[in-house]
């Protein structure tokens, strides 16, 4: 361990170089322009960790599926033409739904490119890598292996963990959970920053009575809410769906509305 650290090369950038690097990085569009604009970086930016918060049924998983489809947008349209890794911890993933979203995403691209090239659905589906990691042991082992896995598959530019809180529901104390989470996140982020991979996490809400600023907060406590760089709260009311930017290092707080259609995440007309 110590030897590894001794050989570490610390990369020191100046902010001007960093700016160039940041502005040349593409983002993954959510297919809802309002949400993209809200995030301040035209979508989910590569190299950062974005946390999606919300009650059940507010569209967290749908948003993840949409991003897994958007990552395949061809380079000709300014897309990444890359692959995604979906880490399912709460059995929310439905392949049929993904197929549906992916197909409409690709059809839209085809229309924009104005080609009659046949979409190879099978090939497109191969660009999604799915892992079902259930329970804290499986999840921990997966996170341990993840840097190697990502190194071997350089085309993966998006990692989705749906949800981050689920594996820690049982079998670990709060202190152990924090320790584990912070270690896993810093390893994941090291990868994400070096390889310019976007990381999207979903998190549930929990109730903490008597707390200032509202008793319904993201689960896993205040220390965890400090960890993420971007936090997007999704909500659903009779008046429609909305995304609230709760925390960001680039954009100010704000709200955007979106809808979930058969095709995926879209702007409200």
């Amino acid at each position: 361990m110590l030897k590894v650290i001794m050989n570490t090369n610390y990369k020191i950038f100046n902010a001007a170089e960093y700016w160039q690097r940041e502005t040349s990085l593409p983002s993954i569009p959510t297919f809802c322009q309002q949400v993209d604009k809200l995030l301040g970086s035209d979508g989910v930016q590569l190299g950062t960790i974005t946390e999606l918060l919300g009650l059940p049924g507010t569209g967290k998983t749908q948003m993840c599926l949409q991003l897994c489809a958007s990552i395949q947008i061809p380079k000709a349209l300014g897309g990444l033409e890359a692959e995604a890794l979906y880490i399912d911890t709460n059995t929310n993933f439905r392949i049929h739904r993904y197929q549906e979203i992916l197909k409409s995403c690709l059809l839209k691209c085809q229309k924009l490119l104005d080609t009659s090239e046949v979409i190879d659905e099978e090939e497109a589906l191969k660009r999604l890598h799915y892992v079902g990691a259930f329970g804290v042991v499986e999840f921990g082992a997966l996170m341990h292996m993840l840097p190697t896995y990502l190194r071997d598959r350089p085309k993966i530019r998006l990692v989705v963990i749906d949800s981050i809180a689920f594996p820690f529901k049982e079998g670990v104390s709060a202190r152990e959970r924090s320790g584990l989470l912070f270690r896993q996140m810093s390893e994941l982020q090291r990868c994400a920053v070096e390889r310019q991979i976007a990381v999207v996490l979903t998190n549930e809400m929990s109730t903490r009575l008597g707390l200032s600023g509202g008793s319904i907060v993201g689960s896993m406590g205040d220390a965890w809410s400090h960890r993420g760089t971007v936090r997007l709260l999704l909500s659903s009311t009779e008046r429609g769906r909305a995304a609230v930017l709760v925390k960001s290092n680039v954009a100010g707080a704000g709200v955007a509305s979106f809808q979930i259609t058969k095709e995926g995440i879209r702007d409200v007309e």
Binding site: A15, A16, Y18, G47, Q189, R227, T229, N249
Partner: peptide
């Protein structure tokens, strides 16, 4: 924690 943004 990957918070620095030169763009910002």
């Amino acid at each position: 924690k990957g918070d620095f943004s030169a763009v910002r």
